Amino acid sequence: MRVYSGVDPVTGKEIYLSETVKGTDKAAYRRADKVMTKLQAQVDKQRSPSTAVTFSYAIDEWLRTADIEPTTRHGYVGYIDRTIRPALGDVPVSKLSARNLETLYGELRRCRVRCDGMPFIDHKAEGEHDCEKAKCRPHECKPMAQSSVRQVHSIISGVLGAATRWDWISSNPAKVAQRPRQVPPQPDPPSPAQAAKLVEKAFELDEAWGTLVWLVMTTGMRRGEVCALRWSRVDLDEGIVEVRSSYTTLRGVGREKDTKTHQMRRIALDTETTVLLREHKKRCQETYAELGADWSEDSYVFVGMRGDLDKPYPPDAVSNRYKKMATRLGIKTHLHALRHYSATELLTAGIDLRTVAGRLGHGGGGATTLRVYAAWVAAADRKAAEVLGSRMPKRRSSG
């Protein structure tokens, strides 16, 4: 039995629902009538015509039409090529179910390459090669991080959401699929003593480098934001820094983009930081003059390496230099931890949550700040309770 179901919206081919009924007797004819009624009901119930295109095709169409920031797109493509396409690429988009997705997530949490559990060699080179020289090793299952599995889910959901909007499927199975739980943030800022050692060492290495580390430590700016900072956004008289953009590099090409939350914010500077920036500005102007370059208020505060004054300090280079400096000091940390340091020190000092969130550039009116720094907020709340209690009139003991 065949029932016309419409036209594939992508391929333009006619679609038929079919089911075989065996037999030639009267009972078979009755069964055939029931099957025909059932198939017709399926066609009538369809909210949109189904499509036979593969999930891989849907991915390509989504990537072609979606408005995704270049560095984010680069990360998405990595997940797609390594994980999503090999697992689901050949499956018709109309056949994907929540169970398919949850099965994939379970496999990734067991082994990121989704091995079958049988021993094999992880070859480090293609074709014929010497495994010893290529350092090939027996495969060891390594689970994909929860955050990475959630990212895979987010990409799949985006593709299926587009397929739903385009009437390729009637609903998005990713909306009902159970995704991995979000691991609570665990910020690990350096201690005040470690922070002091780090900033002292930074100034020993280079006054400009020391100023950069100091600025990140006192403002909580993101790495890309401090690299994108221009003098026109620094008001030394008012002691204010305007954060309007972030700098990123992709395949060696740098560009400015919006901040992570796509919002501008103003951060107040303390007196010592203002003095350091004023001295740094003077040194920058002298360096430009020595090299015969034109300095302007639109120049970057922290310029690129090797005398390239038209480009900012590369974000990756900033992180690598900071990591090496910390390692030499015997401190296990990274640049982003300075952002945590700034936040936790302010919260511990009793600064209100909304102010801290504003300095960090967190959205949601402090919800993100509270989620990430819940322990320090609780400590500040305890301190506030003790302060209030100490100001209350003392009650005499009834005994």
Results as ranks from 00 to 15, higher is better:
residue 345 E to K: 04
residue 312 P to Y: 11
residue 243 V to F: 04
residue 277 L to V: 12
residue 223 R to P: 01
residue 362 H to F: 10
residue 331 I to D: 11
residue 285 Q to C: 08
residue 357 A to G: 08
residue 302 F to A: 13
residue 363 G to W: 01
residue 320 N to A: 11
residue 325 M to P: 04
residue 354 R to Y: 14
residue 229 L to F: 09
residue 334 H to T: 08
residue 283 R to H: 05
residue 363 G to C: 06
residue 297 E to I: 03
residue 240 I to M: 11
residue 221 M to A: 12
residue 286 E to I: 12
residue 271 T to K: 10
residue 355 T to Q: 06
residue 217 M to A: 15
residue 276 L to W: 04
residue 299 S to H: 02
residue 224 G to T: 05
residue 351 I to D: 02
residue 344 T to W: 03
residue 283 R to C: 03
residue 256 E to S: 13
residue 318 V to L: 13
residue 329 L to M: 02
residue 263 Q to M: 09
residue 264 M to E: 15
residue 270 D to H: 04
residue 288 Y to G: 09
residue 347 L to C: 06
residue 324 K to F: 03
residue 221 M to N: 06
residue 284 C to K: 10
residue 243 V to P: 00
residue 241 V to Q: 07
residue 221 M to C: 14
residue 309 L to V: 10
residue 317 A to E: 07
residue 229 L to D: 08
residue 259 T to A: 04
residue 294 D to P: 00
residue 256 E to T: 13
residue 248 T to E: 15
residue 308 D to V: 10
residue 255 R to C: 05
residue 276 L to S: 09
residue 301 V to L: 07
residue 222 R to S: 12
residue 284 C to V: 14
residue 231 W to F: 06
residue 286 E to W: 00
residue 279 E to R: 13
residue 235 D to H: 05
residue 275 V to M: 07
residue 328 R to H: 12
residue 271 T to Q: 13
residue 331 I to E: 10
residue 354 R to N: 07
residue 351 I to Q: 05
residue 243 V to S: 09
residue 234 V to Y: 04
residue 316 D to C: 02
residue 267 I to P: 05
residue 307 G to A: 10
residue 276 L to D: 04
residue 235 D to F: 03
residue 334 H to C: 07
residue 333 T to L: 01
residue 221 M to V: 11
residue 265 R to C: 11
residue 259 T to R: 04
residue 235 D to I: 02
residue 316 D to K: 01
residue 254 G to F: 07
residue 309 L to S: 08
